[in-house]
């Protein structure tokens, strides 16, 4: 466990400090916010994929549930932002509980079923029949609670909590048990690991993290449509960043987000006419030549990556 603390101090603290200070020197604060959001999502995805091997293709479902949990609390309960953030977490957790049976599926079946579930939630929320509750396809406006600086700070806190969680997962008994499940569930069960309970907890934690990310996203951008909160690219980006960096490590997803999302924005701003093409080529090359992520470059040589 001491190693967990050390890893948090060496990896997470400098990152958090840099992100906290960055708005002072760089004024596109929304870009920084998006970095934080993808860092949270990538680590949340890491908690389920990295440690149990389940790839939630519909991860955005929890994100969207969180965003709408936040929005509904503000619109209908006149909640202030912090209680509304709690509602965001609860909404995603509730969805996580409902979707727990999906864990019985494996591989691509799980990924696709999870995608279908995210689509189903989107289709319910954006349905005009629920206009009185969710505003249906007409989108929500939360200008009454709009507070970019405060929500930036809250996002940082969520990121910090997520990083602590991942550092704990990597070093505590529970995390090791999870990784044992990923490698071989049958042997793990025989060795006395509570397989079902372990992965359910990882699943719910992962859902909670995405929900909180969704809540703070809703708070930060304040005007959005269901298409925005359930945009499939949130899932895909989080997956790509995590895998590129190296799942099941703390540093991997961080590097994945900083490098790939950074590159994404550099391409988008400098050569917008070939944005999509260059990014596509880049991803293909990365998967072909670095299939196990950046972290594998180091672990291959026998070093441990924090």
């Amino acid at each position: 466990m001491r190693r967990g603390v050390r890893e948090f101090v060496t990896v997470a603290l400098p990152l958090l400090a840099a992100l906290a200070l960055a708005p002072l020197v760089y004024s596109n604060e929304l870009l920084l916010f998006n970095f934080i959001m993808f860092l949270i999502l990538a680590q949340g995805l890491n908690a389920i994929y990295g440690f149990t091997g389940y790839l939630p293709f519909g991860y955005v479902g929890f994100f969207g549930a969180g965003a709408y949990g936040f929005a509904l609390a503000v619109m209908h309960l006149d909640a202030t932002p912090l209680p509304a953030m709690a509602c965001a977490g609860v909404a995603a957790l509730a969805l996580g509980v409902v979707l727990t049976p999906l864990l019985r599926l494996s591989g691509a079946y799980f990924a696709i079923a999870n995608l279908a579930a995210a689509q189903a939630v989107y289709q319910v929320i954006s349905n005009p029949a629920l206009q009185d509750i969710t505003k249906g396809p007409y989108g929500v406006t939360l200008s009454s609670v709009f507070a970019p600086a405060l929500s930036y700070g809250v996002a940082l806190i969520i990121l910090a909590a997520t990083l602590i969680l991942v550092a704990w997962l990597r070093n505590a008994r529970f995390g090791l048990a999870l990784q044992a499940i990923r490698e071989d569930p049958v042997s793990a069960a025989m060795a006395g690991v509570a397989v079902v309970r372990g992965r359910t907890i990882a699943w719910l934690l992962s859902a909670l993290i995405a929900g909180l990310a969704g809540g703070v996203f809703a708070w930060h951008i304040s005007v959005f449509y269901p298409e925005t909160a359930f945009d499939l690219s949130f899932s895909i980006f989080a997956i790509v960043f995590t895998l590129f960096g190296g799942a099941a490590t703390q540093l991997g997803p961080i590097l994945g987000v900083l490098l790939l999302y950074g590159l994404y924005n550099v391409i988008g701003i400098t050569v917008p006419q070939y944005f999509q093409l260059i990014y596509g080529v880049l991803i293909v090359l990365l998967v072909l030549f670095l299939p196990d992520g950046l972290a594998s470059l180091v672990t291959r040589r026998g070093f441990r990556v924090p």
């Binding site: 596109n28 929304l30 998006n34 959005f224 945009d231 988008g268 701003i269 944005f275």
Partner: peptide, 20 residues
């Protein structure tokens, strides 16, 4: 800029135009 129909990217790029 090209936001590729992605609202999140559109938000960042709007901010980029204004602040940078």
């Amino acid at each position: 800029y090209d936001d590729q129909s992605n609202p999140g990217t559109a938000a960042t790029l709007t901010n980029q135009l204004i602040t940078q």
